[in-house]
Write a protein that binds this DNA or RNA. Structure first.
Lengths: 159, 159
DNA sequence: GATAAAGGAGATTCATTTATCCGATTTCGC
DNA sequence: GCGAAATCGGATAAATGAATCTCCTTTATC
Protein backbone atom coordinates (compact mmCIF):
# COMPACT_ATOMS: atom_id res chain seq x y z
CA UNK A 1 0.00 0.00 0.00
CA UNK A 2 2.89 2.27 0.82
CA UNK A 3 5.57 2.09 -1.85
CA UNK A 4 8.63 0.06 -0.97
CA UNK A 5 10.61 3.29 -1.22
CA UNK A 6 8.44 4.89 1.47
CA UNK A 7 9.05 1.97 3.76
CA UNK A 8 12.80 2.26 3.17
CA UNK A 9 12.59 5.94 4.08
CA UNK A 10 10.80 5.15 7.34
CA UNK A 11 13.36 2.50 8.27
CA UNK A 12 16.23 4.88 7.69
CA UNK A 13 14.56 7.68 9.63
CA UNK A 14 14.13 5.31 12.57
CA UNK A 15 17.78 4.28 12.38
CA UNK A 16 18.80 7.94 12.35
CA UNK A 17 16.52 8.76 15.27
CA UNK A 18 18.06 5.91 17.24
CA UNK A 19 21.50 7.36 16.55
CA UNK A 20 20.45 10.42 18.55
CA UNK A 21 22.28 13.05 16.58
CA UNK A 22 25.42 11.10 15.73
CA UNK A 23 25.96 11.04 11.98
CA UNK A 24 25.55 7.74 10.15
CA UNK A 25 27.06 7.15 6.74
CA UNK A 26 24.83 5.99 3.90
CA UNK A 27 26.75 2.73 4.06
CA UNK A 28 25.89 2.21 7.73
CA UNK A 29 22.26 3.15 7.14
CA UNK A 30 22.09 0.77 4.21
CA UNK A 31 23.34 -2.15 6.28
CA UNK A 32 21.12 -1.44 9.26
CA UNK A 33 17.93 -1.10 7.25
CA UNK A 34 18.46 -3.68 4.51
CA UNK A 35 18.28 -1.11 1.74
CA UNK A 36 20.80 -1.35 -1.08
CA UNK A 37 23.63 1.17 -0.68
CA UNK A 38 23.00 3.07 -3.90
CA UNK A 39 19.27 3.29 -3.43
CA UNK A 40 19.67 4.35 0.19
CA UNK A 41 21.62 7.38 -0.98
CA UNK A 42 18.86 8.34 -3.41
CA UNK A 43 16.23 8.17 -0.69
CA UNK A 44 18.39 10.07 1.78
CA UNK A 45 18.80 12.81 -0.81
CA UNK A 46 15.01 13.11 -1.08
CA UNK A 47 14.71 13.25 2.69
CA UNK A 48 17.43 15.90 2.67
CA UNK A 49 15.65 18.09 0.13
CA UNK A 50 12.55 17.81 2.34
CA UNK A 51 14.68 18.93 5.32
CA UNK A 52 14.13 15.83 7.43
CA UNK A 53 17.83 14.94 7.39
CA UNK A 54 21.02 16.93 6.97
CA UNK A 55 24.05 15.63 5.10
CA UNK A 56 27.63 16.37 6.00
CA UNK A 57 30.01 15.77 3.16
CA UNK A 58 33.58 14.67 3.35
CA UNK A 59 35.58 12.53 5.69
CA UNK A 60 33.82 11.90 9.00
CA UNK A 61 30.53 13.02 7.50
CA UNK A 62 27.23 11.24 7.11
CA UNK A 63 23.55 11.88 7.65
CA UNK A 64 21.94 13.33 10.75
CA UNK A 65 18.33 13.79 11.74
CA UNK A 66 17.18 17.35 11.09
CA UNK A 67 13.73 17.13 12.68
CA UNK A 68 12.20 16.53 16.08
CA UNK A 69 11.16 12.84 16.24
CA UNK A 70 8.31 13.72 18.60
CA UNK A 71 6.89 16.20 16.11
CA UNK A 72 7.47 14.30 12.88
CA UNK A 73 4.60 12.03 11.91
CA UNK A 74 4.65 9.01 9.64
CA UNK A 75 2.43 10.98 7.28
CA UNK A 76 5.05 13.73 6.98
CA UNK A 77 7.70 11.17 6.09
CA UNK A 78 5.62 8.99 3.79
CA UNK A 79 4.54 12.03 1.79
CA UNK A 80 8.14 12.84 0.95
CA UNK A 81 8.05 9.70 -1.19
CA UNK A 82 4.37 8.98 -1.99
CA UNK A 83 2.18 12.02 -2.71
CA UNK A 84 -0.88 10.35 -1.11
CA UNK A 85 -3.00 13.27 -2.26
CA UNK A 86 -6.61 13.81 -1.31
CA UNK A 87 -9.05 14.12 -4.23
CA UNK A 88 -9.98 17.76 -4.65
CA UNK A 89 -11.35 17.84 -8.17
CA UNK A 90 -13.13 15.26 -10.29
CA UNK A 91 -10.36 13.14 -11.85
CA UNK A 92 -12.43 12.92 -15.02
CA UNK A 93 -12.87 16.67 -15.15
CA UNK A 94 -16.65 16.43 -15.29
CA UNK A 95 -18.02 19.92 -14.93
CA UNK A 96 -21.11 18.75 -13.06
CA UNK A 97 -18.81 17.51 -10.29
CA UNK A 98 -16.91 20.73 -9.88
CA UNK A 99 -18.63 21.83 -6.71
CA UNK A 100 -18.91 18.41 -5.17
CA UNK A 101 -17.35 15.04 -5.87
CA UNK A 102 -19.57 12.17 -6.99
CA UNK A 103 -20.23 9.38 -4.52
CA UNK A 104 -17.42 7.26 -5.97
CA UNK A 105 -14.73 9.87 -5.63
CA UNK A 106 -16.07 11.10 -2.31
CA UNK A 107 -15.75 7.59 -0.91
CA UNK A 108 -12.23 7.12 -2.25
CA UNK A 109 -11.30 10.52 -0.85
CA UNK A 110 -12.70 9.54 2.52
CA UNK A 111 -10.52 6.42 2.46
CA UNK A 112 -7.46 8.56 1.78
CA UNK A 113 -8.56 10.83 4.61
CA UNK A 114 -8.66 8.08 7.21
CA UNK A 115 -5.31 6.84 5.96
CA UNK A 116 -3.92 10.35 6.50
CA UNK A 117 -5.41 10.47 9.99
CA UNK A 118 -3.93 7.13 10.91
CA UNK A 119 -0.45 7.90 9.61
CA UNK A 120 -0.64 11.30 11.26
CA UNK A 121 -1.33 9.70 14.62
CA UNK A 122 2.13 8.16 14.88
CA UNK A 123 5.31 10.12 15.36
CA UNK A 124 8.81 8.95 14.65
CA UNK A 125 9.38 8.94 18.42
CA UNK A 126 6.47 6.52 18.89
CA UNK A 127 8.31 3.97 16.78
CA UNK A 128 11.39 4.03 18.97
CA UNK A 129 9.53 2.78 22.01
CA UNK A 130 9.98 -0.88 21.28
CA UNK A 131 10.86 -2.52 24.56
CA UNK A 132 12.73 -5.34 22.84
CA UNK A 133 15.02 -2.91 21.07
CA UNK A 134 14.69 -4.84 17.86
CA UNK A 135 13.14 -2.38 15.50
CA UNK A 136 13.30 -3.18 11.79
CA UNK A 137 16.05 -0.60 11.58
CA UNK A 138 18.26 -1.83 14.28
CA UNK A 139 22.01 -2.03 14.61
CA UNK A 140 24.26 -4.20 12.56
CA UNK A 141 25.44 -6.42 15.39
CA UNK A 142 22.04 -7.61 16.56
CA UNK A 143 21.05 -8.37 12.99
CA UNK A 144 24.12 -10.54 12.63
CA UNK A 145 23.33 -12.35 15.87
CA UNK A 146 19.77 -13.03 14.82
CA UNK A 147 20.92 -14.51 11.53
CA UNK A 148 23.54 -16.72 13.19
CA UNK A 149 21.01 -18.08 15.65
CA UNK A 150 18.29 -18.74 13.12
CA UNK A 151 17.01 -22.27 13.41
CA UNK A 152 18.16 -23.19 16.90
CA UNK A 153 14.91 -22.16 18.54
CA UNK A 154 16.42 -19.53 20.80
CA UNK A 155 14.91 -16.06 20.71
CA UNK A 156 17.85 -13.69 20.47
CA UNK A 157 17.93 -10.47 22.44
CA UNK A 158 19.89 -7.54 21.17
CA UNK A 159 21.93 -7.03 24.33
CA UNK B 1 -3.37 5.50 -3.49
CA UNK B 2 -5.60 3.03 -5.25
CA UNK B 3 -4.12 1.99 -8.57
CA UNK B 4 -5.67 3.56 -11.63
CA UNK B 5 -6.76 0.07 -12.65
CA UNK B 6 -8.70 -0.32 -9.40
CA UNK B 7 -10.49 2.95 -10.02
CA UNK B 8 -11.37 1.82 -13.54
CA UNK B 9 -12.80 -1.38 -12.09
CA UNK B 10 -14.96 0.56 -9.65
CA UNK B 11 -16.27 2.85 -12.41
CA UNK B 12 -17.22 -0.08 -14.58
CA UNK B 13 -18.90 -1.91 -11.71
CA UNK B 14 -21.00 1.19 -11.03
CA UNK B 15 -21.96 1.44 -14.68
CA UNK B 16 -22.96 -2.22 -14.67
CA UNK B 17 -24.95 -1.80 -11.46
CA UNK B 18 -26.79 1.13 -13.01
CA UNK B 19 -27.68 -1.05 -15.98
CA UNK B 20 -29.70 -3.23 -13.58
CA UNK B 21 -29.03 -6.59 -15.15
CA UNK B 22 -29.04 -5.54 -18.80
CA UNK B 23 -25.78 -6.57 -20.48
CA UNK B 24 -23.39 -3.87 -21.57
CA UNK B 25 -20.71 -4.49 -24.17
CA UNK B 26 -17.11 -3.73 -23.31
CA UNK B 27 -17.35 -0.97 -25.90
CA UNK B 28 -20.28 0.66 -24.08
CA UNK B 29 -18.59 0.29 -20.72
CA UNK B 30 -15.42 1.79 -22.12
CA UNK B 31 -17.24 4.88 -23.37
CA UNK B 32 -19.27 5.40 -20.23
CA UNK B 33 -16.33 5.13 -17.88
CA UNK B 34 -13.53 6.75 -19.89
CA UNK B 35 -11.42 3.61 -19.91
CA UNK B 36 -9.71 2.62 -23.15
CA UNK B 37 -11.60 -0.19 -24.93
CA UNK B 38 -8.82 -2.74 -24.85
CA UNK B 39 -7.89 -2.14 -21.25
CA UNK B 40 -11.54 -2.22 -20.21
CA UNK B 41 -11.76 -5.77 -21.53
CA UNK B 42 -8.72 -6.82 -19.53
CA UNK B 43 -10.18 -5.44 -16.31
CA UNK B 44 -13.59 -6.97 -17.01
CA UNK B 45 -11.88 -10.33 -17.45
CA UNK B 46 -10.29 -9.98 -14.01
CA UNK B 47 -13.67 -9.06 -12.52
CA UNK B 48 -15.14 -12.06 -14.32
CA UNK B 49 -12.58 -14.48 -12.88
CA UNK B 50 -13.42 -13.07 -9.43
CA UNK B 51 -17.11 -13.74 -10.17
CA UNK B 52 -18.26 -10.13 -9.84
CA UNK B 53 -19.39 -9.97 -13.47
CA UNK B 54 -20.53 -12.56 -15.97
CA UNK B 55 -19.67 -12.39 -19.66
CA UNK B 56 -21.94 -13.48 -22.47
CA UNK B 57 -20.11 -14.07 -25.72
CA UNK B 58 -21.46 -13.62 -29.18
CA UNK B 59 -23.96 -11.33 -30.78
CA UNK B 60 -26.20 -9.59 -28.28
CA UNK B 61 -23.80 -10.47 -25.50
CA UNK B 62 -21.83 -8.31 -23.11
CA UNK B 63 -21.13 -8.07 -19.40
CA UNK B 64 -23.65 -8.33 -16.59
CA UNK B 65 -23.31 -7.81 -12.88
CA UNK B 66 -22.98 -11.15 -11.08
CA UNK B 67 -23.14 -9.89 -7.50
CA UNK B 68 -25.56 -8.13 -5.19
CA UNK B 69 -24.64 -4.42 -5.18
CA UNK B 70 -25.93 -4.10 -1.61
CA UNK B 71 -23.59 -6.85 -0.44
CA UNK B 72 -20.51 -6.01 -2.47
CA UNK B 73 -18.15 -3.60 -0.76
CA UNK B 74 -15.53 -1.35 -2.31
CA UNK B 75 -12.93 -3.43 -0.48
CA UNK B 76 -14.13 -6.59 -2.25
CA UNK B 77 -13.80 -4.90 -5.62
CA UNK B 78 -10.54 -3.07 -5.01
CA UNK B 79 -8.88 -6.26 -3.83
CA UNK B 80 -9.59 -7.92 -7.17
CA UNK B 81 -7.02 -5.51 -8.60
CA UNK B 82 -4.82 -4.37 -5.68
CA UNK B 83 -3.91 -7.02 -3.10
CA UNK B 84 -3.95 -4.46 -0.25
CA UNK B 85 -2.65 -7.11 2.10
CA UNK B 86 -2.30 -6.70 5.83
CA UNK B 87 1.19 -7.30 7.24
CA UNK B 88 1.24 -10.69 8.92
CA UNK B 89 4.92 -11.44 9.08
CA UNK B 90 7.99 -9.26 9.36
CA UNK B 91 8.80 -8.18 5.78
CA UNK B 92 12.48 -8.44 6.62
CA UNK B 93 12.08 -11.95 7.96
CA UNK B 94 13.61 -11.07 11.32
CA UNK B 95 13.14 -14.04 13.59
CA UNK B 96 12.78 -11.88 16.69
CA UNK B 97 9.64 -10.37 15.14
CA UNK B 98 7.96 -13.66 14.39
CA UNK B 99 5.50 -13.53 17.23
CA UNK B 100 4.85 -9.82 17.07
CA UNK B 101 5.54 -7.10 14.54
CA UNK B 102 7.90 -4.27 15.45
CA UNK B 103 6.40 -0.84 16.07
CA UNK B 104 7.10 0.27 12.51
CA UNK B 105 5.32 -2.62 10.84
CA UNK B 106 2.56 -2.64 13.43
CA UNK B 107 1.80 0.99 12.64
CA UNK B 108 1.82 0.43 8.89
CA UNK B 109 -0.41 -2.59 9.37
CA UNK B 110 -2.81 -0.51 11.45
CA UNK B 111 -2.97 2.03 8.61
CA UNK B 112 -3.85 -0.74 6.18
CA UNK B 113 -6.45 -1.95 8.66
CA UNK B 114 -8.29 1.38 8.84
CA UNK B 115 -8.15 1.59 5.06
CA UNK B 116 -9.79 -1.83 4.89
CA UNK B 117 -12.45 -0.76 7.37
CA UNK B 118 -13.21 2.38 5.42
CA UNK B 119 -13.45 0.65 2.04
CA UNK B 120 -15.51 -2.10 3.63
CA UNK B 121 -18.03 0.44 4.89
CA UNK B 122 -19.22 1.33 1.39
CA UNK B 123 -21.21 -1.00 -0.83
CA UNK B 124 -21.61 -0.73 -4.56
CA UNK B 125 -25.26 0.17 -3.90
CA UNK B 126 -24.18 3.13 -1.75
CA UNK B 127 -22.44 4.65 -4.75
CA UNK B 128 -25.58 4.58 -6.86
CA UNK B 129 -27.43 6.88 -4.53
CA UNK B 130 -26.24 10.06 -6.12
CA UNK B 131 -29.22 12.32 -6.31
CA UNK B 132 -27.82 14.18 -9.27
CA UNK B 133 -27.54 11.01 -11.30
CA UNK B 134 -24.15 12.04 -12.55
CA UNK B 135 -21.85 9.38 -11.23
CA UNK B 136 -18.41 9.16 -12.76
CA UNK B 137 -19.66 6.12 -14.62
CA UNK B 138 -22.73 7.55 -16.15
CA UNK B 139 -24.36 7.15 -19.53
CA UNK B 140 -22.90 8.29 -22.78
CA UNK B 141 -25.52 10.90 -23.53
CA UNK B 142 -25.12 12.93 -20.37
CA UNK B 143 -21.38 12.84 -20.80
CA UNK B 144 -21.80 14.27 -24.26
CA UNK B 145 -24.05 16.99 -22.90
CA UNK B 146 -21.60 17.92 -20.18
CA UNK B 147 -18.78 18.17 -22.70
CA UNK B 148 -20.86 20.32 -25.05
CA UNK B 149 -21.78 22.67 -22.23
CA UNK B 150 -18.28 23.02 -20.84
CA UNK B 151 -17.36 26.62 -20.33
CA UNK B 152 -20.77 28.28 -20.45
CA UNK B 153 -21.22 28.27 -16.69
CA UNK B 154 -24.42 26.26 -16.68
CA UNK B 155 -24.55 23.21 -14.44
CA UNK B 156 -26.05 20.47 -16.59
CA UNK B 157 -28.52 17.99 -15.16
CA UNK B 158 -28.75 14.56 -16.61
CA UNK B 159 -32.53 14.54 -16.99
C1' DG C 1 48.51 20.36 -1.17
C1' DA C 2 47.69 15.28 -1.40
C1' DT C 3 44.81 11.76 -0.10
C1' DA C 4 40.95 9.36 1.44
C1' DA C 5 36.26 9.45 2.97
C1' DA C 6 32.13 10.99 2.29
C1' DG C 7 27.73 12.80 -0.24
C1' DG C 8 25.63 14.71 -5.11
C1' DA C 9 23.58 13.74 -9.29
C1' DG C 10 22.88 12.17 -14.04
C1' DA C 11 22.58 8.02 -16.95
C1' DT C 12 21.33 3.48 -17.31
C1' DT C 13 19.20 -1.03 -16.32
C1' DC C 14 15.53 -3.92 -14.61
C1' DA C 15 10.78 -4.93 -13.13
C1' DT C 16 6.08 -3.88 -12.86
C1' DT C 17 2.04 -1.58 -14.22
C1' DT C 18 -0.60 0.32 -17.77
C1' DA C 19 -2.12 0.16 -22.31
C1' DT C 20 -2.55 -1.66 -27.08
C1' DC C 21 -2.82 -5.08 -30.80
C1' DC C 22 -4.46 -8.99 -33.06
C1' DG C 23 -5.88 -13.55 -34.08
C1' DA C 24 -9.08 -17.14 -32.08
C1' DT C 25 -13.44 -18.54 -30.29
C1' DT C 26 -18.34 -18.22 -29.14
C1' DT C 27 -23.01 -17.11 -30.29
C1' DC C 28 -27.02 -14.97 -32.37
C1' DG C 29 -29.88 -14.20 -36.40
C1' DC C 30 -30.77 -15.04 -40.92
C1' DG D 1 -24.08 -22.84 -42.59
C1' DC D 2 -22.66 -18.03 -42.92
C1' DG D 3 -21.64 -13.61 -41.31
C1' DA D 4 -21.75 -10.18 -37.85
C1' DA D 5 -21.20 -9.16 -33.06
C1' DA D 6 -19.21 -10.13 -29.13
C1' DT D 7 -15.67 -11.97 -25.58
C1' DC D 8 -10.97 -14.52 -24.83
C1' DG D 9 -6.31 -14.40 -24.26
C1' DG D 10 -1.52 -14.21 -25.67
C1' DA D 11 1.97 -10.93 -27.33
C1' DT D 12 3.76 -6.60 -27.38
C1' DA D 13 4.66 -1.67 -26.41
C1' DA D 14 4.87 2.35 -23.40
C1' DA D 15 5.26 4.44 -18.93
C1' DT D 16 6.50 4.37 -14.31
C1' DG D 17 8.91 2.81 -10.20
C1' DA D 18 12.94 0.45 -8.25
C1' DA D 19 17.66 -0.29 -8.33
C1' DT D 20 22.39 0.23 -10.07
C1' DC D 21 26.47 2.44 -12.05
C1' DT D 22 29.70 5.98 -12.76
C1' DC D 23 31.78 10.18 -12.40
C1' DC D 24 31.89 14.51 -9.76
C1' DT D 25 32.30 17.64 -5.69
C1' DT D 26 33.08 18.52 -0.82
C1' DT D 27 35.78 18.12 3.29
C1' DA D 28 38.75 16.30 7.16
C1' DT D 29 43.16 14.83 8.14
C1' DC D 30 47.88 14.49 7.51
Amino acid sequence: MLSTTAEYALRMMIALAEAEGRPLTSEQLSRRTDVSPDYAVKILQQLGRAKFVRAQRGRGGGFRLACDPAKTTLLDLVRVIDPLDRINRCPLGRVEHEGRLCALHASIDRAIEVLHEQLHSYTLADLLEDERGTMCATDEESVQVSIERTGNGAVPRSN
